[in-house]
């Protein structure tokens, strides 16, 4: 239970960073932290204490089969990491372009649109 709690704490930290920081690079870091908190959450779902890699071999005893960790969340996390990388590179590219336009990373200076 504690790990789930810590995972949510990490998520909240990312959200705090996103909301409270004015520097857009720090906002990007906040998103990345949130993303990784959720990846961690998925890994924890599939985790088993004393688990082994889920690779089936012939004449495997049932006790080993029962110790298999759930491979599906790991596959999900792999996909999610790749997506996160794509999004992050787009965010960083936009940060660089915004810096070229305004000469600053400060969102309160950049922000002209009213929302």
């Amino acid at each position: 239970m504690t790990v789930y709690f810590l995972c949510v704490v990490l998520l909240t930290m990312g959200l705090y960073c996103l909301v409270a920081k004015k520097n857009i690079v720090k906002k990007v870091l906040g998103i990345v932290i949130m993303d990784y908190a959720v990846n961690l959450y998925l890994i924890i779902i599939g985790y088993k204490t004393g688990g082994v890699a889920p690779i089936i071999e012939a004449d495997m005893p049932l006790s080993t089969l029962e110790r298999f960790v759930d491979p599906l969340p790991q596959a999900l996390v792999l996909t999610s990491i790749v997506i996160g990388l794509g999004v992050m590179s787009l965010m960083v590219a936009m940060c660089i372009r915004l810096y070229e336009k305004h000469g600053t990373f400060d969102m309160s200076v950049i922000s002209k649109l009213r929302g």
């Binding site: 959450y41 915004l98 922000s111």
Partner: peptide
């Protein structure tokens, strides 16, 4: 342009928060 980039960045940040929630 400055306006497009800012709008895109805003959309990107909020969209990413949505994606994180969906994955959760």
């Amino acid at each position: 342009d400055a306006e497009e980039l800012e709008a895109g960045f805003k959309y990107l940040i909020l969209g990413s928060v949505a994606s994180v929630m969906l994955l959760f």
